[in-house]
Nucleic acid binder design. Sequence first.
DNA 1: CTGAATCCAGTAGGATACTG
DNA 2: CAGTATCCTACTGGATTCAG
Lengths: 130, 130
Amino acid sequence: MTAPTPLSRTGDAYDPDCPTRHVLDRIGDKWAVLVMLTLKDGPVRFNDLRRRIGAISQKMLSQTLKSLERDGLVSRAAYATVPVTVEYRLTDMAQGLIGILDQITRWAEGHVGAIMDARRAHDAREAEAA
Amino acid sequence: MTAPTPLSRTGDAYDPDCPTRHVLDRIGDKWAVLVMLTLKDGPVRFNDLRRRIGAISQKMLSQTLKSLERDGLVSRAAYATVPVTVEYRLTDMAQGLIGILDQITRWAEGHVGAIMDARRAHDAREAEAA
DNA sequence: CTGAATCCAGTAGGATACTG
DNA sequence: CAGTATCCTACTGGATTCAG
């Protein structure tokens, strides 16, 4: 540590130095969220993961898994079978996050209608102005 | 295209067509989250918002506010004072989201230590391998 | 099967300057 | 004060290819 800077002020993450920001960024990571949601029902193998998410490229999946593993949110287990088998699963720590992600999903499903309506109304107002 | 498998599943947001994804993306938006957190204690004016967030550029702030307004999460009120005054505030719909964002923040503050430890351990293991 | 490495296009986003 | 418009760089992330 270099300076005795107060880590977080009132709990907000404006400061890039604030470690909370790192977590926010992880949640803000589209692929990381999808990967975690896909793993929530149990361990999944690499290409299986790839197939289930569908839209993800091999590069992004690999990258995402590595960063999630680095953060201790996902663990990797390799088995020396004839064609190598690798399983990924959520760590205990990630379980709490999953709960929050589920809440987000639930909120989203409950409000997406209102949001779409707001968009339509807004766009209509704008088109009229033009 | 290389994806002969449509596989439009139901429930999760793998499909870009799934409207839930839009909400996920909004939460994944770093600036949108910071703006909403900054507005949670009451209406704030444009440049005030800018100053409080600090790191944001006027372009991104303007852009973020516009998209949040479009989604019905933030409302804009302009007052015809001598120098124009514009206030932004969260809508009722956004209040529920704020609750979730607070949970994320709380989880982050509670686990950021473990995450940082995991990173250090992981990086150490990696450096040793090299 | 599980990745790593390279190339490259699209875009996010900062800096700057100007308008109502 | 509250934005808009333009330029320009840097990074994201897909496609492809190679390797263990």
